[in-house]
Design a protein around this nucleic acid. Structure first.
Lengths: 132, 132
DNA sequence: GCCATTACTTACTTTTTTGTTAGTACCCTA
DNA sequence: TAGGGTACTAACAAAAAAGTAAGTAATGGC
């Protein structure tokens, strides 16, 4: 998020893993708040303050950081209006819009996974009860 | 990766963001090496040592940690054979197999994104040259 | 008895990410 | 001239993730 040591094994490994396009794709949205931000923008343009209000737990600092990275990576477009008080709008780019249908599928899968895990833990509790 | 403070804002926020099914889904595969591991297992069962050899930069510690988390989250199945030297096999579960088609799409998107970024930086260099 | 093999642990350090707090610039309005 | 609104930034602290190095257990073969 901040600057990185360019020589660490950590950085080397980051480069290594992103040669895989799938890992690369997931890394782009891997920051804690990024997908939440992108989901909000899916509906339309939003101002900085609107995003902040819609994602209740995020701090201004984190919102800024994540937006900056998303902008750098071509995932959002930032438009500054020369007004006072300032107005800045964020929106999805063409490339990030292409992800929308994939997000839907992933989201469905996530819901499925949650159910699976609930069943799993229910089973475990049951078999624990039986063994007593 | 290791234990977490259960009361930190960090942990609270993690809980908050994973109420979004999409974020939840991505978090499940968010560990640095997880997608690489899952991709290898897509083809079939693999032993611990085979995984290690196929992912050249990973350490045994990281492989173990990532596999443990994947197992905990129902993403891989671990089978231990009571032999000496030990033999342990890993494979995808039903729920993680359902992700395979989504991975393909994401991977294609990742490749597209890489191209887009290459063009983008080429343009920037060009306009930089022009302005001189 | 000693070594090799396999799949890990353990203790520790480094790096990265996330969160806290307190600012800033700008102009408009009261 | 004081205060308000907006979109940030800076300096710092805490937490989490990733990496390093050196073990361990079990047993079959020499």
């Amino acid at each position: 998020m901040a600057k990185r040591k360019e020589t660490s094994t950590n950085t080397e490994n980051r480069n290594y893993i992103t040669t895989c396009n799938l890992t690369y794709a997931v890394c782009l949205v891997g920051g804690r708040w990024k997908l939440l931000i992108l989901c909000k923008l899916e509906i339309g343009k939003l101002r900085f303050g609107e995003l902040r209000n819609q994602i209740s737990n995020i701090t201004e600092r984190m919102l800024t950081l994540q937006l900056r990275e998303l902008e750098r990576d071509g995932m959002v477009k930032r438009t500054v209006y020369a007004e006072v008080p300032p107005r800045v709008e964020y929106e999805l780019t063409d490339i990030s819009k292409k992800l929308v249908p994939i997000w839907c599928q992933l989201s469905n899968w996530g819901a499925q996974h949650k159910e699976t895990m609930l069943e799993k833990s229910a089973n475990e509790i049951e078999s624990l009860a039986e063994s007593n």
